[in-house]
Nucleic acid binder design. Structure first.
Length: 621
DNA sequence: AAAAAAC
């Protein structure tokens, strides 16, 4: 085991600070004082702290149209880490200076809703922890995960959360989340993110990406000596921004981030369309450090000047390839490049997805500065935990075929599992169109299979109700368009049916990734017919890579079909994902591949063990 | 061609 990870972080941070071409003050990590070592005697806290608002303390003028002073240094505006850490104390005292008196002042933590419910007995959790750790969990499935890293000065991965040491408060939240060990993507991505590097990370669906970018952002905000929550007039200035392509996914990320940030004093707020904006505005006014949002609503908030991105230090794009494809790219570009957000290299940018087509990577580099590319697992591939089946089904036979599957499943389930009524096996059915979703749902209900549907023509209320009803097992079948294809973490999805196959293999990967999550196994069935010919080759290759049984007829179609159904044409071999810079450097004699590493280089294909416990709930994407 | 994302 590594002796001192903290030291190496400090060292590399120092290097970054020196080599950083940009003069804007980037936090120098070497000044980090872990929360448990902080004392309350921060002399710098006597600056003008103006007022309280809904329990949050605001710094800076609250009145007229003066330009906000957003410099991170400078006495009047400082709000030291310890102050945030002991959030709230002294707020009513009007800048008394000492913030560590939690009993004296108002403490925001006392009013924070416990996102873990009643499950807050840390001792019990610790106990369960060690039990889990010793119970010989099925970590073996993750022992041979290939990892590709490229970029300069790549920090080495860690094996345990203890090595990362995010501080006692975050450690407690990690325990509350019942995370035993970091997942492979977390082991690599968190050190990279903590070192302040930009990151493009590919990892399999359900492998814990949300936590991989949330923890570093929360930790970074906690430790930034000069970070402060600012409001000028009605405009708020979040420090972190997390964007995702669907409303439900933003909700989910928000829920997770609230758990991760519990009692840290870091405030997470979500904003998305289809819901009343006033409530979101009120929530924003109460203070925001990390904003989770969908692009449209964010643009709205920016145009109303209720949010400014001027103070953003951390930008994360979840499902980044989706965010940068044709439909979203202009909006994202507007948000990132034309809305006053600090430039790349000043802010820290992290892009996460299970898939990363090469041309999207190229496009994404507009938003990145000297980033590290990380690929964990067979990129763009599915996990081995999902059994994939593909059946030839004519368009006209699809409904009756689905019915057969559902009947078989129902009977099998009833005989197989006693607790089926309690732990209903859920089936997620993907279709191509919104109309198709409605009509299939109606047909299923008519035929004795309680179903619901989620798609973009439904109201947000209906969408959220549908998701809840599905999760609870009340309607154990959910018919969905691609709105549900990415990121959603729905426990107990046992079966994903591709009633209509998508045209792109990456979409297929995301869809089937709704099952087989958090170490559990799942089944994915696809209905294939002649209208899916363009997908044949990519599908056959993908299934082969995942050691799935490829029917002879599909191989036949694949051999005749042209390349297609894949924006991300793999060049063969089991390790498909690749830093586009590396591909382009071949022949130019440039070596981005662990190039410039100083001693701790481990670039290249490395088999690193690791794993995570099944049954652990989280936003695994 | 469809899906998603603001009012």
């Amino acid at each position: 085991m590594r002796t001192s990870w903290a030291d190496s972080v400090s060292n590399s941070a120092a290097e970054i600070a020196i080599s950083d071409k940009n003069s804007l003050p980037r936090p120098t990590r070497s000044t980090y004082v872990p929360p448990h070592l902080r004392s309350g005697s921060i002399s710098d806290l006597s600056g003008p702290v103006s007022g309280t608002n809904g329990g949050s303390r605001w710094i800076g003028s609250d009145g007229g149209g003066t330009k906000p002073e957003l410099r991170r240094q400078g006495q009047g505006n400082s709000y030291a880490t310890a102050g945030r850490d002991n959030a709230g104390g002294g707020g009513g005292g009007g800048g008394g200076g000492v913030r560590n008196n939690r009993s004296g002042g108002w403490d925001r933590r006392e009013r924070e809703v416990n996102p873990f419910g009643n499950d807050d007995k840390i001792d019990d959790i610790k106990q369960n922890f060690s039990e889990q750790e010793n119970s010989g969990i099925n970590f073996d499935a993750y022992e041979d995960i290939p990892v590709e890293v490229s970029g300069e000065n790549v920090p080495p991965p860690v094996n345990t959360f203890a090595e990362i040491d995010l501080g006692e408060i975050l450690n407690q939240n990690i325990r509350r989340c019942k995370y035993v060990r970091p997942t492979p993507v977390q082991r690599h991505a968190i050190p990279i993110a903590l070192a302040g590097k930009d990151l493009m990370a590919c990892a399999q669906t359900g492998s814990g990406k949300t936590a991989a970018f949330c923890f570093p952002i929360i930790s970074g905000i906690m430790r930034e000596p000069y970070a402060q929550r600012t409001r000028v007039g009605r405009t708020v200035y979040p420090l972190g921004l997390i964007l995702s392509p669907t409303r439900e996914l933003s909700c989910q990320i928000h829920d997770e981030a609230k758990k991760f940030s519990y009692q840290t004093g870091v405030k997470v707020v979500v904003a998305y369309g289809g819901a009343p904006i006033n409530q979101q505005l009120r929530e924003l006014e109460r203070g925001v450090d990390i904003l989770v949002a969908t692009p449209g609503r964010l643009v709205d908030l920016l145009e109303r000047a209720r949010v400014s991105l001027q103070a953003i230090r951390y930008l994360a794009l979840d499902e980044a390839d989706r965010m940068l494809d044709m439909g979203f790219e202009p909006q994202i570009r507007k948000i990132v490049e034309q809305m006053n957000m600090p430039n790349r290299g000043v802010r820290q940018t992290m892009l996460f997805s299970a898939t990363f087509p090469r041309e999207i990577q190229r496009l994404a580099s507009d938003f990145l500065s000297n980033h590290i590319f990380l690929a964990v697992g067979r990129v763009g591939s599915s996990t081995d935990l999902i059994v994939q089946r593909v059946e030839f089904v004519l368009e006209s036979d699809k409904r009756s075929h689905l019915m057969d599957l559902l009947h078989a499943q129902r009977e099998n389930g009833n005989h197989g599992k006693v607790s089926l009524t309690l732990q209903q096996a859920l089936t997620l059915v993907f279709v191509e169109t919104k109309k198709g979703a409605d009509s299939l749902e109606h047909w299923l209900c008519m035929n004795g299979f309680p179903s619901t549907t989620i798609h973009g023509d439904r109201t947000q209320q209906e969408r959220e109700l549908a998701l809840r009803s599905f999760k609870s097992g009340k309607t154990p079948i959910l018919v969905a368009t691609d709105v549900a294809a990415r990121g959603l973490d729905i426990p107990h999805v046992a079966h994903v049916v591709n009633f209509d196959l998508p045209n792109d293999i990456d979409d297929y990967v995301h869809r089937i990734g709704r099952t087989g999550r958090a170490g559990k196994t799942g089944l994915a069935t696809a209905f294939f017919n002649e209208s899916n010919l363009s997908l044949a080759r990519a599908l056959a290759e993908l299934m082969q890579e995942a050691n799935q049984e490829v029917p002879a007829w599909l191989t036949h179609y694949a051999s005749r079909a042209p390349y297609g159904g894949n924006k991300n044409r793999r060049s063969g071999g089991r390790f498909g994902g690749c830093d586009f810079r590396r591909e382009e450097s071949i022949g130019k004699n440039l070596d981005y591949y662990s190039g410039g590493n100083s001693g701790n280089a481990y670039g290249g294909l490395v088999d690193i063990g690791g794993g995570y416990a099944p049954g652990v709930t989280s936003a695994w994407d």
